[in-house]
Design a protein around this nucleic acid. Structure first.
Length: 180
DNA sequence: AGATTGATAAGG
DNA sequence: CTTATCAATCTT
């Protein structure tokens, strides 16, 4: 039986992605579709922070695609990767500064492209305000999950200094299996 | 290790 | 317009 929590408010999202990424582990990602609310506990996240982070989409500046990263915290960023996978991010921090948290896994589904498929998240949900949206939001039910940090994956194009940062956070229950 | 897949951004 | 690139996943 999945619990129901309290919706995260603007003040929560206004903090830095470096703080939010580990904190979002254990929170409930909520999606209302066809009148039914799906709730999945977040098990894995990655932090993308500033134009100086060469792994971050905003590292090449503001474009039509990345402008959402500069919006205020609490906004969703959904984009298509490899022509087939919708990836879901939570924009964080203050308006004007690009930072976001990629949701890489939820309980039972590991992989950023899988959770969006099961939760029916696609690019139509880009730029949703998750503090007011009735389609997509995050709740906190007080559940605490121990987690560990690791290097980010899938960012071979980034500079080495950015590939080395421990900006990936994984719940200890470890549903996610690193690719070996 | 290779195929898939299409939006995105940069270049002519 | 053309081309290369990609926060992945699946099958071999």
């Amino acid at each position: 039986m999945m619990t129901v929590g309290k919706r995260l408010e603007r003040d929560y999202y206004k903090r830095s992605a470096t703080v939010l990424a580990p904190d979002l582990i254990g929170k409930l990602l909520c999606r209302k579709v066809d009148g039914q609310v799906l709730r999945y506990r977040i098990t894995e996240t990655e932090c993308y922070y500033s134009e100086q982070d060469t792994a971050c989409h905003a590292s090449k500046g503001k474009t039509e695609r990345t402008k959402v990263l500069y919006m205020q915290g609490g906004t969703s960023y959904v984009y298509l990767c490899y022509g087939m996978h919708s990836l879901f991010n939570v924009v964080t921090g203050e308006e004007g500064f690009p930072e976001a948290v990629l949701i890489r896994g939820v309980e039972g589904y590991n992989g950023p492209g899988k959770l969006t498929k099961v939760m029916k998240i696609d690019r139509s949900l880009n730029e949703e305000d998750m503090t007011t949206s009735d389609k997509l939001w995050i709740e906190d039910d007080g559940y605490q999950v121990a987690h560990r940090a690791d290097k980010r994956v899938g960012i071979d194009y980034a500079e080495e200094k950015d590939r080395e940062i421990l900006w990936r956070f994984i719940a200890d229950d470890g549903i996610y299996k690193p690719v070996k």
